[in-house]
Every structure is written in C-alpha cells, then in structure tokens.
Write a protein that binds this DNA or RNA. Structure first.
Length: 385
RNA sequence: GGAGAGGUGGCUGAGUGGUCGAAAGCGGCUUCCUGCUAAGAAGUUGUACGGUCAAAAGCUGUACCGAGAGUUCGAAUCUCUCCCUCUCCGCCA
C-alpha cells in the first residue's frame, strides 16, 4: 500500500500520480484522508483517557487515593473508553481497508496512456521465422497427440488440459532448464507451498480488491497460488532482515491457478489462458536505492531464457493505464506466435517499490544502525511455460 | 481424529494481580584496557503511533508478553473463545 504519511503530506502529488492509471483511484484518496483524520482524532482522545486511567491505578498503588475513590473516578472512563475503542477500531479498519484497495503510484518514467495501445515498445530481439501457412500451437499439439483438451475438460472443467508423452516431457524439461539457468545466476531455488493463507494474498496485493479471481478452499483459510510471487514474496513477511542479507534473489517453479473470471470468451482456444499453468518465477528483495537497477537486471534474466531458446521477442514498457495493481513500473516480454502472426505476453517484470513490503511488513535493519525500513520487492516471470 | 504440554524481547529462559516493556544468560553495538593467538571491564541494546523541538538528540504519552473478549482502580500474570506449535496414540502418501 501507499505510505499514509506521504498521502497526508502530499495528497495532490499522490492523486496526480494515481490519475495516470485512469482507474479512478484519486477519488479514494480524499475519502481516505477524511477517515484518517477522524481516526487520528479518536486515537488522540483515546490516549488521553487511557493516560487518565493509568494515573488512577497508579494513585491506588501509591496509596494516594482509596480503592473506593478510584472506582468512582473510573466510572466515567469505563463507559467512554470501550465505546471510543470500538469507534477507533472501526475507523482504523475502514481506513486500512481503503488503503489496501488503492493501487500503487506509477513511477515517473512510466509513459502516459490509458490502455495497452499506448504501451511503448523498447526493444526487439531475434528474427521472426518465415513459415508458409503457420499452424496454431494447438493444431500441432493435437496432431502430435501431446495435448488432450477434451479429457482435460472431462477431468476438471474447461480451460484445463492434459499434457501427454513428449509434451509432458517438454514441459518438465523447460521447467528444469529455466530453474537451472536462474539458479546458476545467483537465484536461490525455492519450492514453496502452492496453497497460501489470506495474509499472503493481501501481502502481495491480490486481495482484497480482486476477490473472486482465485481458487479458495472451501472451509479453509487457503488459496491456490495464482503465481509463485505470492508464497515467495511472503517468505519474509513480518521479519526484519539485516541490510547485509540484501539483495535476496529467489527463483521458484509452481503451478499457478487462476479463475480467469473476467475473461469469458477470450483465448478460449488452445493452451493459452488456462486455469492451471506452469511458471518459473523470479523474485527479488533489495534496498530501495537499488530497485531500479535490479529491475533492469531481472528483466534481462527473463529475456535470457527466450534468447537461449532462440525465440523472437520484444520488450514493452507498460503505460500507466495498463499496469498491474501493485506495480510502480512494469516491463512485459512478448514472444512471437507464428500461428497468430503477432507477439503475445510471456513474462511480466515489475518493480513494486515498497508497496508490497508495506503490506507484507518486509523490513530490514540498516547497517548504520538506524530504524528498520521497508525493503523493495520485484518479480518477473522467467518464464511462463 | 484422540490425549497431554506449551505459546514472553534477535535467541535461551524467569516471571501467577501493581514497583514489569518485562530478571538473568547468550548474541549485537559503543567505549576502555591488555602485545599475543584473543581475553577482560563498563555502558548500551525491541516495535508502532503521537507530543515537545527549526531539526536531530533528549525528554515524554499510548499500545504491544500468540489473537480476541471478560473480571479489576490496575492483567504477561485470573476467566472464556479462537489460532498455532510440540509430544504420544491412531490413520496414512
């Protein structure tokens, strides 16, 4: 979430930055400021009453007043404090809930624009293969007998696919290839739980705003991970690391589960927009001053996979209107699909600044002995399989 | 699933109603001392949000001993509910 202090002190700047998302978040800032002000007033009053309470019990202790007198003095407090506590708790919850629903502010280097048409192409790599009448991947896969869409639907439901024989082997080979590649470049491999609790989902920004996009276990406080970003970024939740421990790089393979609730009718063909898919994810934790550099390096690490596989791709800088909720800056990598005669997203590499760190309470103790500070987090697909 | 034990500061671990944000030890930091393969001495050492201040330091207020609720003038300490961990038994890939 955004820094409450910055919103209080520079509301206009924050609103201006959020306006670049073209999603109406700026209006929520004013609402939050109102709630915040009420909340702070309630806290001040509450602290005053509690101070009085402590004085009374202290006076009993030192024999300054009798118990009877203390009871009498406390009578009013005993009515006021619980009521005020309840009010303050509600205001706090309300303000916090609002903050959790407000997206990250775009970085100044993010281009203006309201949708994907205004993204900026930054680079292209590789040669687009010349193929006579290229076939779609699902045609080829069906012919080879390596993807079975019908049985996937039978076993689960639509958008689930069975991968067979050389297809399964290819899937597994790519997974290993990517993990080995990143692990060789300093990313510590981690295989996390693929179910996470709600705190994790809030920590990385999936919840509360996007409730319904994910699979939740009935009667349990557990969600199937929509990306390894969630368990891996939350590894150090509520911890204070030492500055010397940063940066931390992790790579992780997990299956990913998404309900794709809003995408009915989109990409209904083939192995593209599945409810379950495999991905190797890169996650970084670093000092605030290094996150921009780390973002560039992470994106190059993801690109290296495409280059090693000899696949033509391009890098896109997302405009303000097309960025994900938690990101302050995001590059998409798009790989050439001969059968569709266009580039399609294969990776998304984001710098979250301290947005996730604030939600997940990811801090580090500076080497100079200062107060704990929020670290920065980044992640990128490296890649979706 | 059944039975029992327990959740305290970076760690170990005291603390059963007030003098407890919390003994002690370890670890960390600072200073001092010693010429010998590092030891000793002293001090210091939680987090968040406020106030004071030009600011920092300092001082100061409130909260935090798994979470929530209750009893009380006063709760780490008593009561209730929940969560989690450990041990044993059962079941099981």
């Amino acid at each position: 979430m955004l820094d409450p202090r910055i919103i209080r002190e520079h509301p206009e700047e924050v609103k201006k930055a959020l306006a670049r998302r073209h999603a109406g978040f700026e209006g929520q800032i004013d609402e939050w400021l109102k709630v915040d002000q009420e909340n702070r007033a309630a806290v001040a009053e509450l602290e005053r009453l509690r101070q009085r309470k402590n004085e009374i019990s202290n006076d009993v202790k030192t024999g300054k007043i009798t118990k009877e007198k203390a009871q009498e003095e406390s009578k009013e407090l005993k009515e006021k404090v619980p009521a005020l506590e309840e009010l303050q708790r509600q205001l706090d919850e309300k303000g916090n809930g609002m903050l959790l629903g407000i997206a990250n502010a775009p970085d100044p280097t993010v281009p203006d624009g309201k949708d994907e048409n205004e993204n900026v192409e930054l680079k292209k790599w590789g040669t687009i293969p010349k193929i006579d009448k290229p076939k779609e991947h699902d045609e080829i896969a069906k012919a080879l007998g390596i993807l079975d869409f019908e049985r996937g639907v039978k076993i689960a439901e639509t958008r689930f696919t069975v991968v067979m024989d050389m297809g399964a082997k290819l899937e597994r080979a790519l997974m290993n290839f990517m993990l080995d590649m990143h692990a060789g470049k300093g990313y510590r491999e981690v295989f996390p739980p693929i179910m996470v609790n709600r705190d994790c989902m809030v920590g990385t920004g999936q919840l509360p705003k996007f409730d319904g996009d994910f699979y939740k276990c009935e009667g349990e406080n557990l969600y199937l991970v929509p990306t390894a970003e969630v368990p891996v970024t939350n590894l150090y939740r509520d911890e204070i690391l030492k500055e010397e421990q940063l940066p931390i790089y992790h790579c992780a393979y997990t299956p990913n589960f998404r309900r794709e609730a809003g995408s009915a009718g989109k990409d209904t063909r083939g192995y593209i927009r599945q409810h379950q898919f495999n991905k190797v994810e890169l996650v970084k934790f670093c000092l605030p001053e290094n996150s921009n550099d780390e973002h560039e390096k992470l994106t190059l690490n993801a690109e290296a996979v495409l280059e090693a596989l000899g696949l033509a791709y391009r890098r896109i800088l997302l405009c303000g209107g097309d960025m994900g909720f938690s990101a302050q800056k995001c590059y998409d990598l798009e790989v050439w699909f001969p059968g569709q005669n266009r580039y399609r997203e294969i990776s998304s590499c984001s710098n979250f600044g301290d947005f996730q760190a604030r939600r997940a309470n990811l801090r580090y103790k500076p080497a100079d002995g200062g107060k704990p500070r929020y670290m920065h987090t980044l992640n990128g697909s490296g890649l979706a399989i």
